[in-house]
Design a protein around this nucleic acid. Structure first.
Lengths: 366, 366
DNA sequence: CTGAAAGCGCTTACAG
DNA sequence: CTGAAAGCGCTTACAG
């Protein structure tokens, strides 16, 4: 059983010898080539299992054009959204006979480049990436080299690469309609980093949808975050400290949303009652929060799967179209009518555009 | 810029030619061997950056004894606990010049074996694993083959492999002391799968610590789970439906803990007030639950890091000792004195061991 | 300190 | 359908 512990690993030459065929025939049998006699296929199969032969992937990769490996690069593996994408992509890769090399950039462009270089050294057959940075460095070189690449979640301007992203518009539109119907017309937005495509898109779409809905959005109502929890905390603090604070908050990702919840708790503000909150990305536990967190959900599993399938297609020489998935609102308990809502949105609009209210902080109007 | 897109990749031969040295010297310069003249080292360095040379990892792996790759196998990458372990281990690998091949067994022994075979084909230099199953299959073969292996979180009986695990005893002891001081003496336990080392250990230790603390533990107070959320739900339902239900619940991992919270919510029981709850493993959002969830925390980051370092040591020919980290209780709001606590634990003990109370469900005793 | 040469374990035209 | 042979891109004793 553990007998051959230290003995040299059997090679395809050993298999050929045991099967009584030539090295070439053994290789062809192993790879399922058509022109091999059934008898030899069987003999080789026997020899393989008898010797416990495991093909050396490096020798194969060196000789043939492909390595059987794909790279998956995510921004932060601890973010449940990316963990789900990575997992789904990996499943697809596995189903197609690829092993996955996982790179966790951990929000660092430097680390991203380190991993990317390693992947190039390992001659990955394709790369699936939720990219960081501005498209300089290894990523640009990789795309320029012609290696199959698919972007997921994020894209990079100037790099012409198929992508799987989601469209924040439907979700944001529903979110605004929901808040509007509850009587909110002063909505704070905690934006993602403007150096990422998703950070930019969500802010632009929020602003355009708010305008469409007739909700005024003075720039003081936008806080700039970085998709990390801490920045959501800071942003919520900032927004709620305005002379005329918003009655509702939207965070551009779930980590910042959680940060905002932490900040509101610290400020003694009750979510739902005192401030309504909506965040991008669902969390497995969002319904256990107090109250349940209303979210704009993206289908991370589908994104990972479609991106994986897209990459397989690119590797196969196809040029798949980019796909854009919808987002949708999942209503839980974190949004309610503002406790002290004004009856006339118009009036409030005029106020917020003109002189800020004296710093009573809150407008008593009952 | 994108000029050489389709041109063949430069090899070390091109580098040697450009630097005006032999192939061997180029290789030695590249690998930082001592006996190379400074001038040649510099010339090779120039040629490398000028040609954009990237060493072919497969050729190197085929020739030399190691591949520069390690495998990291986790049970479920979507579990925050394992995501953190994977990330920390990966960092250590990177610092030591290794690229990580990530395998997500997704709670399936079959998938674990598929990945393990792929890793063996890729000639990983070492394996870090939170193993599934009973130690048959690829895992056993790998250990028997002499490949460096380190277990993290879980171990497998009969496989003599260094490991990094945590000792549930201090955390459970604190948890029981905490519950005791609040007046609980009827505690339900939602156990992990007895086919895993952690599932077994936590149950055994809980039982022994409860005995030590003088808390009776009839078998009806143990529900069998599988570390998945759903089983925590079922387990909590079961326990709370007992004729004489527990006043507190301990779940052997966070996913089952979350499941229990879901079940309690569905049953209309308020955590803290009606039932106290403690779960293993901290969650990034546990403090935002209603109320905050008290947990028995393990240091996942340290486990991943230490396991990574241990693996590097094993690869280096050392035989590092296994390390066992402590667990500790993080008190939040999910435990309070039972609403209808008896004054005398002794009396309650006698009751619970004897005739179950008639199914009023709750003992009114005010 | 350096070069020439062998060879890691495969795949794949090329003949037959 | 099969075998003999070349060669993928490196590393590493072996001489010098």
């Amino acid at each position: 059983m553990a007998g051959g512990a230290r003995s040299a690993r059997p090679t395809i030459r050993d298999v050929a010898a045991a099967a009584g065929v030539s090295l070439g025939t053994a290789s062809r049998a192993l790879n399922g080539h058509k022109n091999v006699s059934p008898g030899n296929v069987e003999r080789v199969r026997m020899a393989v299992s008898q010797l416990g032969f495991q093909l050396n992937a490096h020798a194969r990769s060196l000789r043939s054009a492909h390595s059987g490996t794909i790279g998956v690069l995510v921004s932060d593996i601890r973010n449940p959204f990316f963990a789900e994408i990575a997992r789904a992509a990996e499943m697809v890769a596995l189903e197609n006979g690829y092993v996955t090399l996982l790179a966790n950039a951990d929000e660092s462009v430097g680390q991203q480049d380190t991993y990317l270089r390693g992947m190039v050294s390992h001659r990955i057959d394709g790369l699936l990436a939720a990219p960081q940075g501005d498209g300089t460095g290894s990523l640009k070189e990789i795309v320029a080299s012609g290696l199959p690449v698919v972007f997921v979640d994020r894209t990079i301007d100037g790099l012409d690469v198929p992508s799987v992203t989601s469209d924040s518009r439907p979700g944001l539109r529903e979110a605004l309609a929901h808040l509007r119907s509850l009587g909110h017309n002063r909505i704070g937005f905690i934006a993602g980093p403007q150096a990422t495509s998703t950070g930019r898109e969500r802010l632009v779409v929020f602003l355009s949808e708010a305008r469409e809905a007739g909700i005024p959005q003075p720039s003081e109502l936008v806080a700039q975050g970085d998709f990390q929890s801490r920045s959501g905390e800071v942003g919520a603090h900032l927004l709620m400290s305005l002379a005329n604070p918003p009655t509702a908050l939207i965070a551009a990702d779930s980590l910042m949303g959680v940060g905002a919840l932490v900040a509101l708790k610290a400020l003694g503000l009750r979510v739902g009652r005192d401030v309504s909150v909506i965040a991008f990305d669902d969390l497995p536990y969002a319904s256990l929060f107090d109250p349940g967190l209303t979210v704009i959900d993206q289908d991370a599993e589908a994104m990972g799967r479609l991106a994986g399938e897209g990459l397989i297609a690119v590797i196969g020489g196809e040029r798949p179209a980019s796909v854009v998935l919808p987002t949708r609102l999942v209503v839980r308990g974190s949004c309610r009518a503002p406790a002290l809502a004004r009856k006339s949105p118009i009036q409030a609009t005029e106020r917020s555009q003109g002189i800020p209210a004296p710093h009573t902080g809150r407008q008593d109007h009952l």
